[in-house]
Amino acid sequence: MDWSQIAVDTFSASLGALAIVYVLAAQGLNIHYGYTGLFNFGQAGFMAIGAYGVAIVSAPESVGGLGLSLWLGIAASVVAAVLLALLMGIPTLRLRGDYLAIVTIAVSEIIRLVLRSEWSEQHLSTGGNSGINGFAGPFYDNNLLARIGGIPATRFNATRYEVGPFQYSGRELWVMVVGWFVVAVFAVLTMLLMRSPWGRVLRSIRENEDAARSLGKNVQGYKMQALVLGGVMGAFGGIVLAIFQNLALPDDFVTRTTFLAYAALILGGAARVGGPIVGGVIWYTLFSFMNNVVAQMKSADLFPESVKANAGQLPFVFLGVALMLLVVFRPQGIFGDRKEVELDAR
């Protein structure tokens, strides 16, 4: 067991690109579930749309993409996420909350299964179950950090940099700078919106939509705006993931991804601007810590033969238990107000 390696891997993961992906997804869910009370269980679908939008539009024509710029790819992702929100919202938002949950979970699975199907491999050049890769080159070629440091981008991207226990490649550092910037923009946007009368209407819809309606608020319209806004945030999670991996892979967007983002949100505290950010970081830190421990134990041959093959599932088992304990003993999460959460029980 190499504990120093576990420490380095865990600390590095805590602020790394994959943590950002979950933070962005959870920020979107915070708009949906935290502020508006919409049970969107299909955030992975929005993430998939984000990842594939940028992949299909920006991948070179040689691999079947459109060969357009990365900017256009990101724009396409955003537009596609807006359209997806409208498509899901129009039939379901007028129904009760649980219908939205069922529809969104189904839609996200449909998206994933269509993307990985042979049909879309042939007709939409999605690459089937192996996905699309090789579209993020321009992002790394234009690494601003390298330019600031006066180092050629290729060399900077390949170099490992470390500060204390944090170790990142130049490549990941660049993703992190851009990713955390996007997180900050969304956090400021959320803060501005939620202290405004607009945010008050969203929270009133969460509490009781008939009351909002009886006061002349167009509940359907507000729910749609919230679904679009949070969906776009989720799409950015997919965009960051796709660019970081230089790969859009359908099975990154299984429903589990949505639930892991929910876990991050609940851990941090819903309906708080900082909730999904701190929750996402802590959650992903714990997750990678357990993954690293399991990996080390595996290589040290510490598991009995019967467990060894499935040891990779253990982190999920622990996280599941941890989430249950959290909901029982601190339902408000890190930032929430327990009194506020318990108002529901009255």
Partner: peptide, 29 residues
């Protein structure tokens, strides 16, 4: 009664006002 439990009394009241400019998405910012 359909009071909005997790909003304060004054926020409940403010919600009632009609024609609020800040209730539109972009002006809210």
């Amino acid at each position: 009664t359909k009071v909005l439990t997790k909003l304060t009394v004054i926020e409940n009241m403010r919600l009632g006002a009609t024609g609020q400019r800040g209730e539109r998405f972009l002006p809210a910012l």
